[in-house]
Design a protein around this nucleic acid. Structure first.
Lengths: 113, 113
DNA sequence: AGCGCTTATAGACCTATGTCAATATAGACA
DNA sequence: TGTCTATATTGACATAGGTCTATAAGCGCT
């Protein structure tokens, strides 16, 4: 089952308990967010005007080896937070806003009136 | 620095890149959410009418040892997602809605108009 | 084909983490 | 004080995960 589908049919945490299956899927995505380097990568891609970022630009933003950055990009892509497209020698990554939006909704807490 | 403060002064991912310090703090909280058992615990507490749940009720909801549940509760408490209060022999856990709300805001993606 | 640049994969290493059994701590009540 | 229940802590173990070096794979260019 696609991870985005699991997110879509998981209720907000504050509404009802997650099933074990829902929790397993959602946890995979949060685990991907649970690393400082991946968070920074994601924020770089998400905030970039135009929407896409070349891998080389991301690599330049960190003092980490190129394979390490590639590894983190793969993790973010595997959980559906990013997509990638190759054009010539370069690979460009884009945010998948739906996934981020579903996560945000999941954490939404009812207004304390 | 308190984790909640870091969350409060971290911009939404889609607005601007996180600093290394912000990312480190935020990652700690997402890492806590990156485990299926902790997600289920959190959803049990967050969705509970009345707001508080006794540890014994949480332990009963899983096929895990009592120390394991206690460990997960500590992780959630350490990152500011839960608080606890002892009354007589029992310990009750409550959601910290501010922390969850800050996380949700962090992941908010601008409406695609 | 061969070279150079960009990105991905494989494998090794070390640390972090989820789980458990055993034990300690805290409180209620004889 | 002693005992029972509820919860937390400790220490051990196995697995997961972040990082690196070395190497492979894709693509453009001559």
């Amino acid at each position: 089952m696609e991870l985005l589908e699991i997110l879509e049919c998981s209720p907000p945490l504050a509404r009802e308990p997650l099933s074990a299956e829902q929790a397993a899927g959602v946890a995979r995505v949060f685990k991907a967010l649970g690393d400082p380097v991946r968070l920074r990568i994601l924020s770089i891609v998400a905030s970039r005007a135009g929407g896409e970022v070349c891998v080389c630009d991301i690599t330049d933003a960190f003092e980490l080896s190129q394979p390490t950055i590639s590894h983190h990009l793969k993790v973010l892509k595997d959980v559906g937070l990013l997509t990638s497209e190759r054009r010539a020698s370069w690979v460009y990554y884009r945010l998948v806003p739906e996934t981020l939006g579903e996560l945000s909704a999941l954490l939404t807490v009812p207004a304390t009136v």
